[in-house]
């Protein structure tokens, strides 16, 4: 699926929740399906430091698409990562570079990507974009 299609699918999924706690219950569930980075790869260079929670990110270029693996010490952060990776992982680098992330706003999770939150998620998105940029036209 294309990035935009996946984003729309996520927006639809979140549309059914009008209670915040239900929404977070779902996010926590999503965290359990995250493509985890291997423990051995959780080295300092894969660590994205946030003020509140820590995030690890690894990537692999395979058959023209970028695959991502990640983890976090906080479950909610993990759930949101899982959403981001569902959008980005397995996509062509050039599509990742140009993708926008409006869907995060639309499902009401923008606070987690605000620059002042410092929970590592915004830095993770930047890192994903950077990795994609490095792999364009390779």
């Amino acid at each position: 699926m294309k990035i935009e299609e996946i984003e729309n699918e996520i927006i639809d999924e979140f549309g059914v929740y009008d209670d915040w706690m239900d929404k977070y219950e779902y996010i926590i569930e999503l965290g359990k399906d995250l493509d985890l980075i291997q423990e051995a790869n959780k080295t300092d260079d894969k660590l994205i430091k946030g003020c509140q929670s820590r995030v690890w990110l690894d990537s692999e270029m395979k058959d023209g698409v970028l695959k991502f693996y990640a983890d976090s010490d906080a479950i909610i952060t993990k759930g949101i990562i899982s959403l981001l990776l569902r959008v980005f992982s397995g996509q062509k680098p050039e599509d990742i570079v140009t993708a926008d992330l409006d869907f995060i706003d639309k499902i009401g999770l923008q606070e987690h990507l605000s620059p002042t939150r410092a929970n590592g998620l915004l830095s993770m998105v930047k890192q994903i974009k950077l990795l994609a940029l490095q792999n364009v036209e390779k």
Binding site: W20, M21, Y24, Q52, I75, I76, N119
Partner: peptide
């Protein structure tokens, strides 16, 4: 077994303002 960030976030969504970190 629970991260303070998760606890704080879920409290916040229920109207409870605490500090975490």
């Amino acid at each position: 077994g629970a991260h303070h960030f998760d606890v704080g976030t879920l409290l916040d969504k229920q109207g409870i303002a605490v500090r975490t970190g």
